[in-house]
Design a protein around this nucleic acid. Sequence first.
RNA 1: GGAGAAUUGGCAGAGUGGUCGAAUGCGGCAGUCUUGAAAACUGUUGAGGGUCACACCUCCGGGGGUUCGAAUCCCUCAUUCUCCGCCA
Length: 423
Amino acid sequence: MLQIPFIRDNKERIIANLAKRNIDATEMISEVINLDEARRTTQAQLDNTLAEANSLSKEIGNLYKSGETQKANILKEKSGQLKELSKELTETLNEKSEALSQLLYKIPNVPNDSVPAGSTEDDNEEIFRAGDIPTLYDGAVPHWEIAKKYDIIDFELGNKITGAGFPVYKGKGARLQRALIAYFLDKNTAAGYTEYQLPLMVNEASGYGTGQLPDKEGQMYHVTADNLYLIPTAEVPGTNIFRDVVLNESDLPIGITGYTPCFRREAGSYGAHVRGLNRLHQFDKVEILRVEHPENSYKALDGMVDHVKSILEDLKLPYRILRLCGGDLGFTSALTFDFEVFSTAQDRWLEISSVSNFETFQANRLKLRFKNKEGKNELAHTLNGSSLALPRVLAGILENYQTEKGIVIPDALVPYTGFSIID
RNA sequence: GGAGAAUUGGCAGAGUGGUCGAAUGCGGCAGUCUUGAAAACUGUUGAGGGUCACACCUCCGGGGGUUCGAAUCCCUCAUUCUCCGCCA
């Protein structure tokens, strides 16, 4: 959520940069400003009314004390009128505030100046590429066939137990999953991130805190009996650690990592591109999150990018990094770098990590602040990234490491799997 | 799930209808003293809205109510603790 004073002061810049998301925010922005003005006017009227009522109450109290009941009763009547007036004003105020926050919830974060304009993923800007795309043997196949061939992932069984998008990993497949999780967590904690194990369901306030609500209402599984949501990413419980928190400046930066399953309804996505592990309702992910001083957040973002790079280099997977264009940028993000692994057998790039700086957009909703040098509370910056999302890394490994003899496990993972080939 | 108790500023903790945005202690910050530090002493120190700045308004777990007036009384929800029940 954008801050109102920021909107007031940066109207043109906001509109110009939101245009990169293909949004014409002119009307919304001026409506925000109008509503805010109306809100403030009403607030001032209400304040004055309440001030009058307060002093009247004091007077009445004094009159009672001195036994002047008659006079007190006269003032009581006046007080009743003020009460009525304040009720009306409160109602107006609530309406304005509600309308204002509803509107603010709908305005996405302002893209960073470096974000290219564009509407689809084709407009994303490739900024880095590394790793060799292997030449596969003649019998190479996509991962869903590999999974069947070696009996390591059973999609049909998942269909039976739950439904499409809930695969069952077995044997070496399950072990490989566990190995990846352990390896990622070790890698992250070695880089200074503190490991957390987080709730897999969150309440409504947390959903709003990180911006999934109301924007992605329909994309989360909702446990209606208790009004809880299954997390679509560890970002939600992880970032909400800091909801309504005032940190000391010396607490910054904070880095945390956690493994969680993620649940996404993925309403509306069907077709060949969602085959196998490419798009699931339940998948595993290890996440990294940072809380940073506003001055350092972009440096921290680069640090996160380097960290994810080092993981992919350990795994020796061919990958590229994209700077997302405005149209592809998430609602809450100011700047996002996507990592994609090349799936040789599918002949396409698969997104495996998304590293973003949210600046104060989440912090404003969360009320995540720190006491700055002047002793004032200032919004912190939040960042997060996947390191990494499991299914597509798994797909990448299965497809890029397939040989006639079987799937060769990347050296970095062997200590975790306890085996070096799936055959 | 049942019964009881509780929820106050960064923390601890007083406050049961008006003079309470709230005693006191700890912590934080600034100063005195000191070569420096510690100790001691002095001052200062919640958040949000509003204003050029004041004024002023709101906030004592959340929401609602009673009252001229609520941290204080009532209702409701959440959370915590104790006891009972159930249970991986």
